[in-house]
Design a protein around this nucleic acid. Structure first.
Lengths: 218, 218
DNA sequence: CTTGCTACTCACCGCTCGGTGACAGATTGG
DNA sequence: CCAATCTGTCACCGAGCGGTGAGTAGCAAG
């Protein structure tokens, strides 16, 4: 087999899919991407070592080696989440002048609504958060809420809530409402009997949301 | 072995657990109860034929025979749900005079909040609803929302929402908020960074909720 | 007692899961 | 050149899953 070397040097490369390159960094990234994609598209139900490995096109052993298992991988997703959020939720006021706390909260609520609607991964994580209480989920949840809190703080600027209102609690409830509405709509195109399918439906929801925010903050 | 018959007639009954009686109705009920209990306590994650059969102390084959499988069993739970709700959410106004639509919605919101906090099965179903879109879940969800809508309609009486407000949409958002807050608190004792552990925490949440409702409906 | 019917159990199937140990090919350093 | 190391693959394990076909125990009528 003296010709073996030559044959290896010019093999019929990539008979069907391009040959896997030996590159740890790229493989790690491929695994991370596959995990995020899987979580976003399939949800946490069928999320596991085997599925991720299949999605990344590599052996699951590498997930154990590079991330120490599913937990480590999920943690890596969490770490990734901060930048993820930054890319997806605008950080300016869209040219608006936010004169009052009510202006601010209305804008934040609508921005958050749109951002969540547009981001499947975030939606899955939120759904996961209210369905399971594992270490995995806790880490993800923490990363998410931290990113969210940071965003709100940045947007808030120097505006302060009106006296006599426990804004932290009110805001938590409003954001909870947004999350549940979006989750419910994603799964079943409706929420509590309210259709949430067409753009028109969502406009009505946004209007009602504005009304609620304005009702509290004026 | 002539004594065999005598031995059978007076056997050491129930050596450890009482002997299973041959009673189809009772077994069906045991299966249904086990399913509800399992769903309430463990959630939908590990909910399956084997787990239910184990919980009911019978063979899974009986679940196929009596309910036609998990789907039929879940449907039976859904059917059960109407009466379940009636037992758990009060149907009167608690001696209050509800003069305005705002009065009504405030009371409904608080009642719903408490009822959901007190009912693990309902919470699991709600969590399931926002996590998966299967036929099973759709059936359960439908039964739940029907029961809920019926309750609201009964409580509403002749009160009508103020003009110029799309009450259906606003109410859907408010109920969504309640559901998400309760789910989140159940899993992690907090929601969007807001602690929801002590009675004091919940009082604050209830106050904020009232403020939101009153903000919209006056 | 025999014969059916019903309630119920058991053993087994194929499959996927998470997890591990052994191994092959490429790369690098001596 | 060999040897060590790194990257990636493969075969296999035990366990649990949903699902099924065959068989057993109790009861009632003849």
């Amino acid at each position: 087999m003296a010709v073996a070397n030559a044959a290896v040097k010019i093999p019929m490369e990539a008979p069907v899919s391009e040959k896997r390159v030996r590159n740890r960094a790229a493989t790690e990234q491929a695994i991370l991407d596959a995990a995020k994609r899987l979580l976003a598209e399939e949800g946490f139900q069928n999320f596991g070592i085997n599925a991720v490995a299949r999605g990344a096109g590599c052996d699951k052993q590498l997930i154990y080696r590079y991330y120490g298992g599913l937990d480590g991988l999920v943690e890596a997703i969490g770490t990734d989440l901060g930048s993820w959020v930054k890319d997806r939720i605008p950080d300016d006021t869209g040219g608006m002048f936010l004169l009052t706390y009510g202006d601010l909260m209305e804008r934040l609520a609508l921005l958050f609504l749109d951002a969540l609607r547009a981001d499947p991964l975030m939606r899955r994580i939120v759904a996961w958060e209210v369905s399971e209480n594992s270490e995995q989920v806790r880490r993800l949840s923490e990363a998410r809420s931290k990113a969210l809190a940071g965003w709100i703080e940045r947007m808030r600027g120097s505006l302060t809530p009106p006296k006599g209102i426990d804004a932290q609690v009110v805001n938590a409830i409003i954001f909870a409402a947004i999350q549940h509405v979006v989750l419910s709509a994603t799964v079943s195109d409706q929420c509590a009997g309210l259709a949430l399918k067409t753009a028109r439906d969502w406009e009505k929801a946004a209007t009602a949301l504005k009304r609620i925010v304005r009702g509290v903050y004026g």
